[in-house]
C-alpha cells in the first residue's frame, strides 16, 4: 500500500537538500521530540504511562463491540498479552470497569468509570491539542500533512 505518496507534500530530491536545510530539519525533529517528552513529563508513581493513556483513550472512544482486549491489541499493534496487562492495570486503578460481553461469553467489555472520564480531561495529548488548536486552520492542515508524510515514511 502506498501511503507515502502524499499529494500535499512535494518531496525534494536528496541531491538538492542543503546542509542548512538539514540543520533546520534536525532542529524541527528535536522540537517534535521535546513536545512529546514534555507531554508525558509527569513522573509521579501514580502517573499513567503513555500506553495506558492510549488504552484509556481507546476505551473512551471505541464502539462497544471492540472495547475488548483483542480490540485494544489491534489498536496498539501489540499481542493480546500486553494489551490484557494494560487493560488490567486500568481496572486495578479504578479507571475502567469490566463486564462480560453480551455477544460473546469468552470476551469482556471495558468501559471507563467516572474516575476514568475525569482523568481523561487531563489527557497530556489534550494539552498539546489545545495549543495546536490556536494555530490557524491552514497551518494546522499543513502541519498534519507534513507529519503524516514523515510518519508514513518512517513505517516504510
Amino acid at each position: 500500500m502506498d501511503l507515502v505518496q502524499r499529494q500535499t507534500i512535494q518531496p525534494v530530491a536528496d541531491s538538492k537538500i542543503t546542509d542548512a536545510t538539514l540543520v533546520r530539519a534536525r532542529g524541527v525533529a528535536h522540537l517534535i521530540e521535546q513536545v512529546c517528552r514534555f507531554a508525558y513529563e509527569d513522573r509521579r508513581p501514580e502517573a499513567l504511562h503513555s500506553v495506558q493513556w492510549s488504552a484509556l483513550r481507546y476505551f473512551a472512544r471505541a464502539n462497544e463491540q471492540v472495547r475488548t482486549v483483542n480490540g485494544l491489541a489491534k489498536y496498539l499493534g501489540v499481542t493480546s498479552a500486553p494489551a490484557s496487562r494494560t487493560a488490567a492495570s486500568l481496572v486495578k486503578r479504578g479507571l475502567v470497569d469490566v463486564r462480560q460481553s453480551p455477544r460473546d461469553a469468552r470476551s469482556n467489555i471495558f468501559t471507563l468509570t467516572e474516575a476514568g472520564v475525569a482523568l481523561l480531561e487531563d489527557d497530556p495529548i489534550g494539552k498539546v491539542a489545545h495549543l495546536l488548536a490556536e494555530m490557524c486552520e491552514e497551518d494546522l492542515k499543513r502541519l498534519a500533512a507534513a507529519l503524516d508524510n514523515v510518519h508514513a515514511k518512517l513505517l516504510d
Partner: peptide, 13 residues
Amino acid sequence: SGGGPGRTLEAVT
C-alpha cells in the same frame, strides 16, 4: 477501519 498493513489502529485514528 478494522486495521490494515503497516499501521496500528491508533495511527489510523
